[in-house]
Design a protein around this nucleic acid. Structure first.
Length: 723
DNA sequence: AGATGTACCATTTTT
DNA sequence: TGGTACATCT
């Protein structure tokens, strides 16, 4: 008799769950239930008492995925599970490093720096080393260093004769990398990449520790294997050498993190790395309609070097992928907003819809439109709570209390609120810090013993140091939440915002309160800071039914009934920068991204492209994305012709920018009988804003309507419904 | 020290 | 277009 959780699986899924011994690679296409396989597998291992929770190591791509997996496992086996090693690579590495950091010359209370801090640090180094930050922006330097780290290379492991980059041999990242690592050590801090790198160092240098974990983890499971980078791959391979029970789930067609060092090659050489590996393919798609699946499959077939899967489904045909051409970004947002409202009227819930964009700045126009329409939305992966100015300041206070050598935190708050410690005083501290190789805090202690600073500045600095000392002494007597509240009050930070007359000051005070509340859930400041640096989702996940806006990258692993794919234009998607340097490789990754986007949709997918787009304040005309042309005709419903006409009409409306627009190209004058015939003269129509009315004149997709309440208006047919 | 003004350039994607 | 780095002002 099969346990109930196995009964509902198909043959391949069940095989993937039940093959418990030896290396296993599950090649799972989009929407084939790979996450389900992973959770069921863990439940199965636990249910059969094959292993204790602590003997299972499961790696997911996001923290959110971990939470969801944990919940599903609990519901499958009917009880909560404690002690699983379930998390992202990063969170698992933190867990290990917090135990053993001192073995590799790192203090266990290290701070985890985010990208912002890393950039500031690099900038400081560039200044000190006289490296032009115009020619070599810190972002580029950090990108280079991160890439090395993603490949598992420390500063002393770089092959100077074989630099894998486009910047050439004079690349200052080479100089900066060792200095950067040394500075991090002084700060007692690590960056994202270090988490993996230090963990690797730990495993290779301390064989007893590696032994211990190799023994402990009897079952290793990895989700989204196609997006592991070399460092993560090495990490996994080391740990898997013990029991060799590693189960990786992935889809080469959904590899979209090549730019971050992910290697599809990892999935291709799995058999080689783990001899005797078993391979299972999941090809039955349970998510999308055949039209959506057909469009996506046709698109991805243009890529070369695929492992190749043939997805199929038993679902009913459903609707074709809908392609819509619009005049510009504004109309795009308007169109999407109107569709959303129409769908809402048909009882679709907002939480089942998503707007997916290529680049995060595209979210803005949609946000504005949804705000005016009063449609609740949330931007996934957008500006986050913990990235707000006031929260970062407050966190800096906590960081400094937790680790006084965290100079970046020190620098952030030494003059916030204003204490009269200006740039001159700070430069003095930096000078000492650099020449003696100590932190800013330590430099401050030194300088107040001297006459380097003016009397008053010296006093304020001395007082600040006393304050920090006092706060540090309270750590063991107060809860993190109470301590934070006290620190914010005593430092004058709260007061600073209370005095501030600007309109956003009250909101900031609210956020600070929210931070204090959030802290209540944590036992130590350190655990809270870990949470902040590793967990990215917005804390304000209200229960309001709302539509999601996000980038295609953030949409990975998610699914929605209705998906709006916006901005499918050459240059934007595929993005110009992905084409330039990496050529075909870049293009294929963009195509996989398009594939990921399409396959998020269960019932209906819209693809939208604008004929004109504003870039850096000036208008540019754009061509439809080549991906649109690559979609099999039988699976799409295109309205290109309608829009060509609409462009001509709209030029009259656009006053300034219209000058820069090209005259319409011949290609778009193809006619399709579909949409604008619907609204012939005399048709009774409904308009969202103007209500009911009658068409009195029609030209192209623009019609004159006599509305019962609003009078004569010229409107676009896409706003209209037949009444 | 801090506030105000001006010139310049550009972020594609994120654990 | 809008953010930010630097220069100049009070």
């Amino acid at each position: 008799m099969l346990p109930p959780y196995l009964q509902s699986l198909n043959e391949q899924q069940r095989e993937a769950v039940e093959t418990l011994e030896g290396p296993l690679l599950v090649l799972a296409g989009a929407g084939t239930g790979k996450t389900r396989v992973l959770t069921t597998r863990i439940a199965h291992i636990l249910g059969n008492h094959k292993a204790l929770p602590s003997q299972i190591l499961a790696v997911t791509f996001t923290n959110k995925a971990s939470y969801e997996m944990r919940e599903r496992i609990s519901s499958l086996i009917g009880r909560t599970v404690e002690g699983l090693w379930l998390g992202t690579f990063h969170s698992l590495c933190v867990r290990i490093l917090r135990r053993h950091a001192e073995r590799i010359n790192l203090k266990t209370n290290f701070t985890i720096l985010d990208t912002d801090d890393s950039l500031r640090l690099i900038k400081q180094i560039q200044k000190a080393e006289n490296i032009d930050d115009k020619k070599w922006p810190p972002r580029a330097i950090l990108g280079m260093i991160s890439l090395w780290k993603d490949r598992g290379l420390g500063p002393d492991q770089i092959d100077k004769n074989n630099l894998p980059n486009q910047y050439g041999p004079k690349n200052p990242a080479l100089t900066i990398y060792p200095i950067y690592q040394e500075r991090l050590r002084i700060l007692n801090a690590v960056d994202f990449g270090d988490l993996l790198l230090h963990c690797l160092t730990l495993f290779t240098q301390c064989t007893d520790i590696l032994d211990f974990y190799q023994h402990q983890f009897r079952y290793i499971l990895v989700d989204e294997y196609q997006d592991t980078n070399i460092a993560q791959y090495l990490w996994l391979r080391l740990l898997a050498q013990g029991h060799k029970n590693i189960c990786c789930v992935g889809d080469d067609d959904q590899s979209i993190y090549g730019w971050r060092g992910a290697e599809i090659a990892n999935i291709l050489k799995f058999e080689h790395d783990f001899p005797g590996a078993h391979i299972i393919r999941l090809e039955q798609n349970y998510r999308s309609t055949p039209h959506i699946l057909g469009a996506a499959s046709g698109l991805i077939a243009k890529n070369t070097g695929r492992l190749g899967k043939t997805l199929w489904t038993e679902a009913d045909a459903g609707e074709k992928v809908f392609i819509k051409s619009v005049w510009d970004g504004e109309e795009e947002a308007r169109y999407v907003g109107d569709e959303i409202e129409a769908l809402q009227r048909n009882k679709f819930s907002l939480s089942k819809m998503a707007i997916l964009v290529r680049a995060s700045h595209q979210t803005r126009e949609f946000e504005e439109r949804l705000l005016t329409l009063g449609i609740p939305y949330r931007v996934i992966g957008g500006p986050r709570f913990y990235e707000r100015l006031e929260i970062r300041d407050a966190l800096a206070y906590l960081r400094l209390i937790n680790e006084p050598n965290d100079s970046l935190a020190f620098e952030r708050i030494i003059n916030t609120p204003k204490r009269g410690m200006g740039s001159v005083a700070l430069q003095n501290l930096h000078h000492i810090s650099r020449s003696e190789g100590v932190s800013l805090m330590a430099s401050a202690y030194k300088i107040i013993e001297t006459d380097e600073l003016r009397g008053q500045t010296r006093n304020t600095l001395a007082n600040f140091l006393k304050d920090v000392d006092r706060w540090r002494q309270q750590v063991s007597f107060m809860s993190p939440s109470d301590l934070a509240k006290m620190v914010l009050d005593e430092s004058g930070y709260t007061e600073m915002w209370q005095r501030d007359k600007s309109p956003d000051a009250p909101g900031r005070l609210e956020n600070l309160k929210e931070l204090v509340v959030a802290l209540e859930e944590f036992e130590t400041i350190e655990s809270f800071l870990d949470h902040v640096s590793l967990v990215m989702e917005n804390s304000s996940n209200q229960n309001v039914d709302s539509i999601s806006i996000m980038t295609l990258h953030s949409a990975k692993g998610l699914e929605f009934d209705i998906v709006f794919l916006a901005g499918w234009e050459e240059g934007l998607f595929p993005h110009q920068r992905s084409l330039g340097e990496t050529g075909l490789k870049g293009l294929e990754e963009e195509r996989r991204l398009a594939y990921v986007g399409l396959t998020r949709a269960r019932q209906r997918a819209y693809i939208i492209y604008a004929v004109n787009r504003k870039i850096h304040g000036s208008w540019q005309s754009s061509l439809p994305s080549r991906f649109i042309g690559e979609l099999p005709k039988e699976h799409v419903d295109s309205q290109t012709a309608v829009t060509a006409l609409s462009s001509n009409f709209k030029i009259r409306d656009v006053t300034g920018p219209a000058r820069y627009l090209p005259t319409s190209s011949g290609k778009k004058s193809l006619s399709s009988a579909s949409s604008f015939n619907k609204f012939e003269v005399g048709t009774r129509v409904f308009h969202i804003k103007f209500g009911y009315g009658q068409v009195i004149d029609a030209h192209g997709d623009k019609v004159d309507v006599d509305f019962e309440h609003s009078g004569l208006k010229k409107v676009i047919t896409s706003f209209l419904e037949k009444a």
